[in-house]
Design a protein around this nucleic acid. Sequence first.
DNA 1: CGACCAATTGAGATGGATCAAGAGCAGTGG
DNA 2: CCACTGCTCTTGATCCATCTCAATTGGTCG
Lengths: 233, 233
Amino acid sequence: MIQVETLFAQFERSLLTSGLQEPLRSRLRLLAQPHNLPRSASIDLSSKGGSIVFVGSGALKLLAHAVHDREQVVAFYFAGDFLTLPTDGQHNYSLKALSRSSLLVFPYARFLTQVHGNPDLLESLLDRHAQSLLKSREKAFALYRKTASERLASFLIAMAGRIGRPGGTGIEIELPMSRQDIANSLGLTIETVSRQFSKMREDGLLETHGRSGVALPSLAAMEECSGSFHCLI
Amino acid sequence: MIQVETLFAQFERSLLTSGLQEPLRSRLRLLAQPHNLPRSASIDLSSKGGSIVFVGSGALKLLAHAVHDREQVVAFYFAGDFLTLPTDGQHNYSLKALSRSSLLVFPYARFLTQVHGNPDLLESLLDRHAQSLLKSREKAFALYRKTASERLASFLIAMAGRIGRPGGTGIEIELPMSRQDIANSLGLTIETVSRQFSKMREDGLLETHGRSGVALPSLAAMEECSGSFHCLI
DNA sequence: CGACCAATTGAGATGGATCAAGAGCAGTGG
DNA sequence: CCACTGCTCTTGATCCATCTCAATTGGTCG
């Protein structure tokens, strides 16, 4: 359980390294809805008419719900990440904790009203949007044409960069998401993902420890597998 | 050939309905690089360190260039569209005219510097980014799981909404892009796209006139084919 | 330890890619 | 006006990666 004030301070530094000026700081503080989500708890974001979310700790998946109970993992988020979900599109979105997570949720419209007079902040937000857009495009670009193994390799490389730690056997990763989540986020079936894991293990590209432990002995070899580029998450 | 001043006025109204205040207007006017592209001409956007582009008239495709001369159609743009291409990602991007087009190109960084003190404008830009992001996600979402016919149906519905006109047989569309472009943008091969066109023609879902003419007798029937949702372009 | 759910593995079905022709449209020049 | 040329588009036959269905194994947690 992270203290709200600590969480807010974290958010503040992440947004602007110089920190926020009063009275803006207090006003945003009032808007911030803190959430402490245990594993597999989720918050519905579609009902709120747009949200800005700051992830203080933990790991989450952003789910888009289509009709027929079909759902799609849009993205994974980790500590320090920002996430803007503006006015509702065709889907309902929800955010589900893969592990205990602490968040700050701001109502989009009211957040923007407060930020309105602060060009630095607006620009910072604009930059984040631009980056997200680029990432989303690169992801779409990547997934159209990639094979299953290229997708998984791309995913693992992205994860290594995001939550990997140097260990005995190259980079070690504790995956907070299930195979099903991985499959769902890569547009594959769980069986295909599982088969690719096995194949990569046979080929010496990775080691697995239990369900969630993965070690990549050689990132270079993995990049070889990922095809031309590897911008995914 | 559209006059530059007309084009700029169009851009101005599109950005802020109330128009721009001096001296910002003049400053942006100076930043605007007008382009008149004949069919199949293109401008390279990767060398410019980020651009903001306003499409005054015509139709264009945004291309991402990967290694090995492979290229991917990221999106199509039409009159009135905005397009933000921030700092370079892993790909080189270029914009290619599908028909005679007129554009305004702004250097991203310098545009932002000018806009810095104008919260309304920044917010307008932020909104556009948010919309683009949403669209890009919906597109990615859509393409992962959709079948070939669902993809094409989604595409045609989007096109109908964008450049369709009511006609003798429902909504009529003059597609400015080739089958190859469509295939490339949907992550399919040209053969598959062609086959789907034929199949839809047999099923009475569409009529074709020459290479570029398409008529959709019933949008509802086409939506039936597009699967759960249909946010593409 | 035992129960349950996640993950793996196998066998068969299939949608789309690939390879290979052929048809239709548009531009050119006689 | 028509034949020639080069292109885009269509259609067919085959192949392969991935999905689907089904059974088994293995991890995790009470």
